[in-house]
Amino acid sequence: MGTVWVLGIDTSCDDTGVGLVRDGQVVVNLVASQVRLHEAYGGVVPELASREHLKAIRPLAERALALAGITPKDLSLVAATRGPGLIGALLVGYTFAKGLAWALGKPFYAIHHLEGHIAAAWPEGLDPPFLALVASGGHTHLYEVLDLGRYRLLGATRDDAAGEAFDKVARLLGLGFPGGPEVERLAAEAEEVVPFPVPLKDQEGYDFSFSGLKTKALHLVEKGLPKAALAKGFQEAAIAHLAEVVLKAAEDTGHKVLLVAGGVAANRALQARFKEAGLKVYFPPKGLSQDNGAMIALAAWRRYMRGFPPSPLSLGATAYWPLEEA
């Protein structure tokens, strides 16, 4: 088999992502961020996101191809996020990718956004089963990965996503967006810590909850407690919570390997905590933890190599799509 080039696109939320993967290796990964556009509104405005995706998608794809030194005809497959996400935003990248695949006469792969995140952290040569924590601004899900395309949901957040909680607390503290790196930076400056209770201490399952931490942070900010100590306390509790749930699941299922994917995976304190716990932990390489197109190309490449059939072009995008059904 010759060289396999995969172009992957993600427009599930507010970032336009185009990535190119050659034989399973990321060659180009471009993300056009809309953070500044939405910052003024205090959150993502779906219609604005869709409009920006439409403006950005063709120039971004052209630049990605130019950087890799290839032409569209060199592509072996085209892949895009089918869901879950904002439907109007998804449709732009997904339909663009279908148009490209159709015109080239090449296979098209409709990819689940979270399978993309998992693929980004999944090193070559690692065989399932293992655990996968996907924690980002929109997701906090713990899965048992039985095989590529076979997932069992163990637990998920009952309220805010982990990254969302970091964003909201960052805003309370007058920090920028995205909140994760900002909170982490401020916490590192702290000389003392304001303790926060760890959520869902004695639960039976493997769920997450972050809204209590956020509310606590709000009360403490109103009391005028030092911000760095507060950031540190919040971060410690949020990470202790993620770690407790995951370690309990590892013990109960007997899995020794964990993938941590999504934007929250970039948090260094979290990385350290899992490594201490004696699990074999894999994180995505730098630049692949946030939403991006390369992770979608990686997932499609895995599916293609394993002989999964391409997706029909009549398959529509979908805002709601459990990973277990991908």
Partner: peptide, 16 residues
């Protein structure tokens, strides 16, 4: 959302 379907699909075909 509807009108963007033709535009996005068309841009993809055009790129190819």
């Amino acid at each position: 959302t509807g009108l963007r379907i033709a535009l996005a699909a068309g841009l993809g075909v055009a790129l190819a």
